[in-house]
Design a protein around this nucleic acid. Structure first.
Lengths: 223, 223
DNA sequence: GTATGAATGTCGCAA
DNA sequence: TTGCGACGTTCATAC
C-alpha cells in the first residue's frame, strides 16, 4: 500500500466525466492495483477512484508527475501532481478478512428454524421459494395449513411491502398454493409500511434478532 | 488527515456486528471526524468505518493503544493496536469539490427529440408531465393518436415498472387522456422487469444511448 | 458469465 | 425529519 499526499488535479473519463481542481489530497494505491483519491471529508468515500483490474503508469509532463490509470473498459483517470508532500509504501500482506453477523441471510436462517415464534404449528415449505418474479424469502404453512409467504427485511419499508404484494399476487394464481397469506417480518417496520401492509391484509411481525439468536444459542447449548 | 499503519484488531457493533482479527492495516482519520480501516485489497472500500458525526477517543489497555469511535446512534468501533508502524498527519484544507458531467437527464432530452425511434408518427406532448404522484418522464402520442406515458431508466428494474404502473393508473382516470399506453424505456431491462411489464400490458423499449447521441450529433452537424 | 437482490449501502433532493 | 430515487453504485450469490 502506497500513500501519497500531493497537491493535485484529477480528471476522470469513463461512465461519466469528472474533474477535480488543484488541491492537496491523499492518493491511495493498494496492492490490488486500485487507486483512490481522498479529500479530508466525505467520510470513507473517495472523490475519485479506479477499481482493479487496472494499470497505473507513472509519467511526467514538464517536470510534474502525471499518473495515468486505465482499466479494460477504457475508463481513464489522470492525476497531475503539482507538489508531492508525502510518499510512503507499506507491506500489509493479505488480510484475514471480515467476520459479519446479523445480516438478512442470517435472519432468514434463524427465522426458518424458529417459525413457531410467528405462530403455533407453523412449518417450513422452502426458503428462497423461486417464482417468475424472484424468490420468496420464506414459504411456509400456518397452524391451519394455509400457505404463508414471508418477506424478510432488516428495515421494513414500503418497497418491501410492494415486493411481498407482487409475490402474493403471483402465488395466489397457483391453485396448489392459494389462498396465500402474507407476513412482513422485519427488525423494524416503518409506520407507512405498516399502514400499507395492513391495508393490503398483510400481517406484520417484528423480529428480535438477539432473541432469535439467543433461542438458537440455547438450542445449541442443549446438544 | 491522519494516516496510521498498524497491526490491529477491530470490533464493530452497530447495525451489524463485525470483527477483524489482528493484521496490519491502514487507519484513516479524516478532518470530518470519520475513521476508516483499509486492507490492501477491496479497492476503495474499507473493511470497517465510522461515519461522522462521531467521536474518537484514544485510550490504552495494558500498554497498547485502543481507539474507541462512537456515534449518536450508539454504534461503536473499537480498534486495538498491537503495533504502530507509521503515524503521520497532514493538513489538506477544504476540498474545492468535484465537477460531474453525467448522462441521465440527457437521455430524456435525446429521446424526446427522437420519439420516432419508438414508432412512426409519435409526437411529444410534454417532458416531466406533472401528476399528483410525481412527474411522468415523457408523455406523448403514438402514430394512432393514443396517449403514451414513457418511463425512462438507465437500468430498467422492477421498481421502474411499478412506478410507471402507478402513473398509468392515475392517467387513465383522466378522460382527456385515457386510454393511456405505457412504454418502459431503458438502456437495459432486467428479465424480471420485462416479465412484469409484459404481464401488465406495458411495452418495453431498449435505448441505445450512443445511437441516440450519434443521431443527435448527425442532426447537429447539419446546421 | 449473467442476473438478481442486499448494503453498516451513501448521497442528494423535495415535501 | 422522512421518503424516494440514483449511484462511475459495489458486492455476493444463485442460476
Amino acid at each position: 500500500m502506497r500513500l501519497v499526499i500531493a497537491r493535485c488535479s484529477v480528471d476522470y473519463a469513463g461512465r461519466l466525466t469528472a474533474h477535480l481542481p488543484l488541491a492537496p489530497r491523499l492518493i491511495l494505491v493498494k496492492a490490488d492495483g486500485s487507486v483512490s483519491i481522498h479529500a479530508d471529508d466525505r467520510a470513507y468515500k473517495p472523490l475519485n477512484w479506479m477499481s482493479p483490474p487496472c494499470t497505473l503508469k507513472e509519467g511526467e509532463a514538464e517536470g510534474t508527475p502525471v499518473w495515468t490509470v486505465i482499466n479494460k473498459g477504457g475508463e481513464k483517470l489522470v492525476i497531475t501532481m503539482a507538489e508531492v508532500l508525502h510518499d510512503s509504501s507499506h507491506e500489509l500482506g493479505v488480510d484475514p478478512g471480515l467476520i459479519k453477523d446479523g445480516v438478512e441471510a442470517h435472519l432468514q436462517e434463524l427465522l426458518a428454524d424458529r417459525l413457531d415464534t410467528l405462530g403455533e404449528g407453523w412449518t417450513l415449505i422452502r426458503r428462497e421459494y423461486m417464482t417468475a418474479i424472484g424468490p420468496v424469502d420464506i414459504l411456509c404453512r400456518d397452524g391451519e395449513g394455509r400457505t404463508v409467504a414471508i418477506e424478510l427485511k432488516r428495515q421494513g419499508g414500503i418497497d418491501g411491502v410492494e415486493q411481498l404484494t407482487r409475490y402474493l399476487e403471483l402465488l395466489n394464481r397457483d391453485p396448489h398454493l392459494a389462498p396465500v397469506r402474507g407476513v412482513f417480518a422485519a427488525q423494524e417496520i416503518k409506520p407507512q409500511a405498516r399502514v400499507l401492509a395492513t391495508d393490503r391484509g398483510i400481517d406484520c411481525a417484528i423480529l428480535d434478532y438477539n432473541a432469535l439468536r439467543g433461542i438458537e444459542d440455547d438450542k445449541l447449548r442443549l446438544f
